[in-house]
Structure formats: structure tokens, C-alpha cells
């Protein structure tokens, strides 16, 4: 069990957790305004793909990240328009968006790069690794915490920023109010749909970053459907973390660790099938400790007397 003390395991945890964490933060924002965003998976996929596209055309990693953010942002506008403006069933819209993301990326993969399945180019440069001065010289800890892509550090900063925003600022307070009781918020002249849009767009940007980390940070390539359920795991992380940024970070860490562990264990005697199952099984077990709102409450909400 020596590998459990190995710094690279924890370093890779940090790397693996970033996409989940960023997407889960986006999911938390949506949840806070009352939108259960099942479309995270698709948003991250779009981000991952467009990061590669941006990189391919500009040759600049940061422009690529920016492009990823922009594309996911555009995509999240569709989610917002459908669910806020047209009041379609949020879950159905989320599922539909996942289809659209998968379709668009596979099509564009073919149309732009003329390949099927995956795109890899050895000349492509991934996100830089930042060595943190001083920190990197601390034994073990330096190996874990230093030398990651900027997005890894950005995600930690974003957790703190979002925590502050939600619970310490006026705008954050109003965002919480819009989710808690939209009718009441509206009666006070708070522009609930505008706030919902804000949260959805913010979620789109976060998912764009998540995607960029996935395709330019962890690896430097794009494969069809490369999110492989991470968006849904992020959704569970959102629920487990009670939509609190700090809580979301804690639950994401668990899943990131499992991701890293599952890759790590592949070197051992276990068949890869079982090691790959690990994150999903742990996620299901984690859900045991989080009680869903329950159909009673949900049904009550959707069948309120005021029509």
C-alpha cells in the first residue's frame, strides 16, 4: 500500500479533480437558482473540444482556453433560453443538450480535423505547468501542490471567490433568494430570470474551463465523448456538497481521488475493468449519504395551488 503515500497520486488527484470541481461549481450555481443542470456533461464536452480547436487554430494555449469558455458560454445560453424563457422541463433540456454536444463535437471532429474517434497532434502544446516558488521546494507537499496547470490553481481561487460571492455580497444574497422563493423574489422587484441567466452563463464558463483542463491539462488530445460521465459525477458532487462551494470542493476531491486511484491501480493485478468502475461505484455509495429531496417535496412544488 506504499502507493497511497506516493505524492504523484495526490498530484494526479488534484489534476483529475479540477474538471469535476469546475463543472460542479457551475452545477451548484444553477442549483442555487433552482435549475437542476443535467447538461453539465455536454457543456464540459463542448469546452474540451473547443479548447483543442482553439489551440489548433491560434497555437496559443490561453487563447484556446478563452475560446473554450466562449463556446461553452454560447452553449449554456441555449440551456438558459430553453429552461428559463420557454420553461421547458430542465431535465429534458439537459439531456437534449448532452446529445447536441456529442453530435456537434463528433461532427466537428470530422469536419475540422477529418478524423474519427480521437484527435491527437504531437506538436500541440498543452497547458503550462506552473511551479510555485517556495512551495515547490517543500518535500512531498511541493510535489503534490506544485507543477500544475494554471486552471488547477484557478479552480481553488474560484471556490473561495464563489463562497464569498454567495454568502457575503448583495448580489449573491439575491441569487440565493431567487432560488429559495422565486415568487417572493419577483414580488420584490428582483429580476429572477436575469439572475438565473447569470448563473447559467457562469456555469457555462466554468464548464468551458473544466473542458479545457480535460483536453489540454490532463492530456493533450480530444476523444469522442471524453467526458465519460464526469459531468454526471460533478452533478453528484454538487448534490453531496449541498451546493456550497466549499462542500462541493470536498466532495469533488473524493471523486478526483477515486479517478486518480483508478488510473493508479491499473498497474496492479486487478483487471482494468474493475479499476475503471471504481469512481462510479464510489459515487453511488456516496449518494447513500445524500438524501434526495424526495418525490413528495418535488411533487408538492410542481403542484402548488397557485397555478
Amino acid at each position: 500500500m506504499d502507493f497511497l503515500l506516493d505524492a504523484t497520486l495526490y498530484a494526479s488527484t488534484l489534476r483529475m479533480v479540477t474538471p469535476i470541481l469546475l463543472a460542479a461549481l457551475g452545477g451548484a450555481l444553477c442549483a442555487r437558482v433552482g435549475l437542476f443542470n443535467v447538461g453539465l456533461e455536454g457543456l464540459v464536452l463542448i469546452g474540451a473540444f473547443s479548447a483543442i480547436v482553439g489551440n489548433h487554430f491560434t497555437g496559443n494555449v490561453f487563447a484556446a482556453v478563452l475560446f473554450a469558455v466562449l463556446c461553452s458560454l454560447l452553449f449554456s445560453i441555449i440551456f438558459g433560453y430553453m429552461s428559463i424563457q420557454l420553461k421547458a422541463n430542465v431535465i429534458v433540456v439537459g439531456i437534449a443538450l448532452n446529445f447536441l454536444a456529442l453530435g456537434l463535437t463528433t461532427f466537428s471532429l470530422r469536419a475540422i480535423f477529418d478524423v474519427k474517434g480521437a484527435y491527437y497532434n504531437k506538436d500541440m502544446v498543452g497547458l503550462p505547468k506552473w511551479d510555485i516558488p517556495l512551495l515547490k521546494d517543500i518535500p512531498w507537499l511541493g510535489d503534490v501542490l506544485s507543477g500544475h496547470s494554471p486552471l488547477v490553481y484557478l479552480s481553488i481561487v474560484l471556490v473561495i471567490a464563489l463562497q464569498f460571492f454567495l454568502f457575503k455580497t448583495v448580489s449573491g444574497f439575491r441569487l440565493l433568494a431567487s432560488g429559495e422563493n422565486p415568487t417572493a423574489a419577483r414580488s420584490l422587484g428582483i429580476k429572477v430570470s436575469r439572475i438565473q441567466y447569470g448563473a447559467v452563463l457562469m456555469c457555462g464558463m466554468l464548464c468551458g474551463l473544466a473542458g479545457a483542463q480535460l483536453s489540454l491539462g490532463n492530456v493533450t488530445m480530444f476523444t469522442e465523448g471524453m467526458t465519460s460521465g464526469r459531468g454526471f459525477i460533478a452533478l453528484v458532487a454538487t448534490m453531496l456538497g449541498q451546493s456550497n462551494p466549499i462542500g462541493v470542493m470536498a466532495s469533488s476531491m473524493l471523486f478526483g481521488f477515486m479517478d486518480a486511484l483508478s488510473i493508479r491501480l491499473q498497474g496492479f493485478a486487478l483487471p482494468t475493468h474493475f479499476t475503471m468502475m471504481l469512481p462510479y461505484i464510489v459515487t453511488i455509495f456516496a449518494m447513500l449519504f445524500f438524501k434526495d429531496k424526495g418525490y413528495m417535496q418535488e411533487a408538492r412544488k410542481s403542484n402548488e395551488s397557485s397555478r
Binding site: I78, M82, L100
Partner: peptide, 10 residues
């Protein structure tokens, strides 16, 4: 995908 999206959006 577009088909689904538009149907689902009523």
C-alpha cells in the same frame, strides 16, 4: 440532436 432540442423545448 437539434430535433430533440426543439421538441423538448415545446
Amino acid at each position: 440532436a437539434v430535433l430533440i432540442l426543439f421538441v423538448s423545448a415545446k
